[in-house]
């Protein structure tokens, strides 16, 4: 087990009150496997990963729970110890590679720096490792690119550079925060292929943060669906697509355009995500849930359902009974029915 997150909570104190960005989130990632964390903006998916990396540092933030990385507890650990792990044993890539790379330093400098933070090697050695890694991620004419600045590369090339920089020290865990969102569709597929190849080669565990279920289907082994700072469904990737158990996941699936679909319109999820300042008392998804009337006694509005096992390895939060869910899925043709 590379990463084990237990009951992770992240709170931010703001002038408007306490923002509960992440609430009791737990997951595990095994060596060489990929966990996709899926959710819309503000669902806490990015914040939870930044917290794992020790990058939530503001004096107004509070992190509780447990994060075990290779068996080491990171929550409450000496920041200096966590810093040494960052970029070495665990690494992260971000959504927009243009803003994530420093505009004033050359590609070669930025990669060599990543090597030299963690390894006591000479500049020349660091640069040759950088060149090697850039070749590996498919950058053409590396020698020339090394002396170029991020703005001189294309979006896809920049993300390759980011990946090279993240993997240069051979981390065991890579957190990829929407790695393809800012890229052209054709380039997206290339980047995903690259991630898959590198994962195979290095045995890196990947936490993939995304809202794109196409990317999930492509890369993930396991999926954690987040909504309003909480995990609402957690299952192997096939189950999420074939046996989804939670109305929010259904909504996500219904929002994917399908070539085979007969109707011309997509079904968006009505309403907007909850404010993390004033969380609803009951189920976080209740205000937007189409099926809450089927649950007797206003339970959805009053009580937050537990994350309960539906089958082996599959958990979901929902007050609907299993037969109700099956009926709805059959009627609406959600998943494999």
């Amino acid at each position: 087990m590379i990463l084990e997150v237990k009951n992770l909570n992240v709170e931010f104190t703001t002038d408007d009150g306490i923002v509960h960005a992440v609430n009791n989130v737990s997951y595990k990632v095994e060596r060489g496997k990929t966990l996709a964390i899926v959710g819309e903006s503000g669902s806490g998916k990015s914040v939870s990963s930044l917290a794992v990396m020790g990058l939530v540092t503001g004096s107004n933030s509070k992190i509780t729970g447990e994060v075990f990385f290779n068996g080491r507890e990171l929550v409450g650990a000496d920041p200096e110890e966590v810093r040494k792990l960052r970029g070495d044993e665990m690494a992260m890539i971000f959504q927009d590679p243009l803003s994530a790379l420093h505009p004033y330093y050359t590609i070669g400098d930025q990669l060599a720096e990543a090597v030299q933070v963690h390894h006591n090697v000479k500049e020349a050695e660091a640069r040759s490792r950088a060149a090697e890694m850039l070749t590996k991620v498919g950058i053409p004419s590396v020698e020339q690119r090394m002396d170029e600045y991020p703005h001189q590369l294309s979006g896809g090339m920049r993300q390759r550079v980011m990946i090279a920089m993240a993997l240069i020290n051979g981390p065991e865990l890579l957190i990829a925060d929407e790695p393809t969102t800012a890229l052209d569709v054709t380039v997206q597929a290339q980047i995903l292929d690259l991630l898959r190849e590198l994962q195979k080669e290095f045995g890196t565990a990947i936490v993939l943060i995304t809202h794109d279920l196409g990317v999930v289907a492509d890369l993930a082994d396991e999926v954690l669906v987040m909504y309003g700072g909480s995990a609402v469904e957690h299952a192997p990737v096939r189950e999420i697509f074939y046996e989804p158990q939670m109305p929010y996941t259904w909504g996500l699936l219904a929002s994917i355009p399908q070539i085979s679909a007969k109707k011309a319109q997509l079904d968006p999820i009505p309403g907007s995500p909850p404010s993390l300042l004033n969380m609803p008392k009951g189920c976080v998804f209740a205000p937007r849930c189409t099926f809450k009337d089927q649950v007797p006694g206003d339970a959805c509005a009053n009580e937050f359902p537990d994350l309960l096992a539906v089958s082996k390895d599959h958990e979901a939060r929902c007050h609907l009974t299993e037969s109700q869910r099956t009926a709805i899925r059959t009627e609406r043709k959600i998943g494999r029915v």
């Binding site: 990396m53 810093r83 960052r86 970029g87 971000f94 990543a114």
Partner: peptide, 13 residues
């Protein structure tokens, strides 16, 4: 800025 977050993610002090 995002590149500062990257610098921290690299493990720079």
């Amino acid at each position: 800025e995002d590149y500062i977050r990257t610098a921290r993610a690299k493990g720079l002090s």
